[in-house]
Simulated scan of single mutants.
Amino acid sequence: MLKRLQLPKGIGFVLPLLLIIIVFFNIPLLYMLGLSLFSKSLTLEYYAEIIQNPVYIQVLANTFKIGLITAFFAIILGYPLSYWMTTLSQSKQIFAIALIVLPFFISILVRTYAWIVMLGKNGIVNSSLLKLGLIGSPIQFLYDEFGVYIGTLNILLPFIVLPLFASMLQFDNRLLLAARSLGAKPFTAFLKVYFPLTLPAVLSGGSLVFILTLGFFVTPAILGGGKVPMVATMLNTLINYYPDWEVAAGISTILLIVTLIFYFLFQKGGRNET
């Protein structure tokens, strides 16, 4: 007699989530891929159209550039902040984490418009500088790439600070004492011991910020003033205004493939350092 098939324990708890992922993620993803590859038959004409159109290539390149620069500055700002948090007492660390997590309870739209109140031509910063006589005319902070970087960093900085902070808390400080006992100066001990052991968390957090930046829509649209083309805004135009679903699906597929390549490069770099 055939043995009765035994399902893994707890499979009943996993199946609903698995079905949700298949129905709401995998199937739409496969449908998008199908749109980009099939017309009446298998074709690459939509990808050829994307490659031959310099506008699409420019927008894709600009999106990846903004993503990389945002991830870079998120690391530059997040690393010292995370390290400083590890030097605090436990109660102060809890307070610092609460301040970092608190913005998640505020709408991204509200936080984006708050930057207009702060940095707009008639905003608080420009008004204060004008009253102090430090400038003769308002400074253009927003409605260009600089404004996009400010808004994006503000929203995504917690995504690198929190994993970095968790990684740094697990670091064994006796390793630094051992390095110092062997004659290493504080900066050398940090560079040779502390930084390499926290680098995997840096790369993981940086890759997360990079990937999230690629799909941003609200912040670039508002703080960029329509002057900073990114993939999300271009897809909105292709789908809702033209519409050209096939080309939009092709661009989305290219974005997905390049994102996966960058992700594996980040992860490989992190594994090489461990």
Score class of each variant (00 low, 15 high):
Ser127Ala: 14
Leu197Ile: 10
Asn173Pro: 00
Leu182Ala: 11
Leu208His: 06
Ser107Pro: 04
Gly206Val: 08
Gly151Phe: 09
Leu142Trp: 04
Arg111Asp: 04
Ile106Leu: 13
Ile108Met: 12
Leu212Trp: 03
Tyr194Ile: 05
Met118Phe: 14
Leu164Lys: 00
Ile211Cys: 07
Val148Gln: 04
Pro186Met: 06
Lys192Asp: 11
Gln93Leu: 04
Ile160Pro: 04
Thr198Val: 15
Leu199Gly: 08
Leu197Glu: 10
Leu142Met: 03
Arg180Tyr: 15
Pro200Gln: 09
Thr112Ile: 01
Ser107Trp: 00
Lys92Ser: 15
Ala96Glu: 08
Leu175Pro: 04
Ser204Leu: 14
Leu102Ser: 13
Gly206Phe: 03
Phe95Ala: 15
Val209Gly: 00
Tyr143Lys: 02
Arg111Gly: 02
Leu169Glu: 09
Leu169His: 08
Pro200Asp: 12
Pro196Asp: 07
Tyr149Gln: 00
Met168Arg: 08
Met118Asn: 10
Ile124Gly: 05
Leu177Lys: 11
Trp115Ile: 04
Pro200Val: 10
Ile160Phe: 03
Phe190Tyr: 13
Ile124Cys: 03
Ala179Asn: 05
Val117Lys: 00
Leu134Phe: 15
Ile139Ser: 02
Leu199Gln: 12
Ala96Thr: 05
Leu153Ile: 13
Gly133Thr: 08
Asn173Cys: 07
Gln93Thr: 07
Lys121Pro: 09
Leu102His: 02
Leu157Ile: 14
Phe190Val: 04
Pro196Gln: 05
Asn154Met: 14
Lys192Val: 04
Leu157Val: 06
Leu162Phe: 01
Gln140Tyr: 08
Phe95Pro: 02
Leu175Asn: 07
Ser127Leu: 06
Phe210Glu: 03
Ala98Pro: 07
Phe105Val: 09
Ala114Gln: 01
Ala166Asn: 12
Asn126Glu: 05
Ala179Ser: 14
Thr188Tyr: 11
Gly183Ile: 00
Gly123Gln: 05
Leu203Pro: 00
Ile106Glu: 06
Arg111Phe: 04
Leu132Gly: 14
Arg174Met: 13
Thr152Met: 15
Arg174Asn: 15
Met118Gln: 10
Gly136Ile: 06
Thr152Leu: 15
Leu142Phe: 03
Val117Pro: 02
Gly205Pro: 07
Phe195Asn: 08
Asn122Ser: 14
Ile108Asp: 06
Leu203Met: 14
Leu191Tyr: 14
